[in-house]
Each structure stands twice: as structure tokens, then as C-alpha cells.
Amino acid sequence: MDFKRLNILLCCNLGASTGVMVTKMREIAAGSTALKDVDVLIEAHPASDIKEYIDHFDVVLIGPQIKHRFLDLKEICDERGKPIEVIDTKDYGTVNGANILKQAIYLRINQTEAN
């Protein structure tokens, strides 16, 4: 990987439902040999607070329960040059932290290549 830092912001309605996901993703990142040299930060916050937190993160993933807000959130992210995607419903529902972490990594890699 061509980066030494990966700061991931997870957003949902209140930031609570993604809390479990944050814990799972942190566990996976900590045990990953591919990420051993990468400083990984993962936090969850309510989508309504995105403007307050976005500048501290590299990528934004939103819970599928708020995908109806994607375009509004994408506008904010685009203004700040931050990539954003909706988390896959199945991965979210099964708390598949590995797949969601991969999604964030791919977003970060694509962002790095674009710049």
C-alpha cells in the first residue's frame, strides 16, 4: 500500500449501530499483516455531524439504512475531496468487518491514484 495512514469515518443515523462495526474493523486491522505499517483510525459518527468530523478522515462509508442521504453526503465529501460509498447491506447486516475494511482500503487506494 502506498499510504501510511488510513482514517475511516463510518456514518449512520446516530453513530450507534456502526459502533459494533468499528470494534470489529479495529480487531481485523490490528491483526492484519497487510496493514502492519499503516496507522489505522476508525470512528463512527452520526451523518448529521459529518461536517464536524470529515476533515480528519480519508474515506467515508455510510450505513445502508441512510443510503437515501447519499447524494447530500456525497456533495459534502466532494467539496472536501473525500471519497464516499454506501456499505453493502449484507456486509453491514452480518457485521463483516473484513469486507467493509477492504472497501475502505480500495476507496483510499483509488483516492491516492487519482491524486
Rank of each mutant, 00 (worst) to 15 (best):
A104Q: 04
I42A: 02
N110Y: 09
I54F: 08
L41I: 08
N13Y: 10
V40H: 04
N99T: 01
L14G: 10
L10E: 02
A30V: 05
H68I: 13
I50G: 01
K36T: 13
D39E: 15
L73P: 01
C11Y: 01
G19D: 01
F3H: 09
L101P: 03
E85Y: 06
D91K: 04
I50P: 00
I28R: 02
K4C: 07
I105P: 05
Q65T: 07
N110D: 13
A47Q: 09
F57Q: 01
K51Y: 10
A29V: 07
Y92F: 14
E43Y: 04
K36P: 09
A16Q: 13
I62Q: 02
T112N: 10
D55E: 15
I50N: 02
R26N: 12
S32I: 09
L101C: 03
G97F: 03
E52F: 12
K82T: 08
I109H: 10
L107C: 08
H45W: 11
D2L: 10
L14Q: 13
I54Y: 04
I84Y: 05
I76P: 02
A98D: 06
S32E: 12
F70L: 15
P83K: 06
K74P: 00
L107K: 02
H56S: 15
K4F: 08
G15L: 05
R26D: 05
N115T: 11
I42T: 03
H45P: 03
D39Q: 14
I105V: 15
I105R: 05
R80Q: 13
P64H: 06
E43H: 07
E113A: 13
I28N: 01
V95C: 12
L73D: 05
K102L: 13
I76R: 01
E27V: 01
K67C: 06
T94S: 15
K90H: 08
A104R: 01
L71Q: 15
N110H: 12
R80P: 00
E27G: 05
R26G: 00
G15F: 08
K51I: 14
N110Q: 13
N13D: 10
M1H: 12
T18D: 06
C77S: 11
D78A: 15
E43T: 09
L107H: 05
N110C: 08
D78R: 11
K102A: 10
V20P: 07
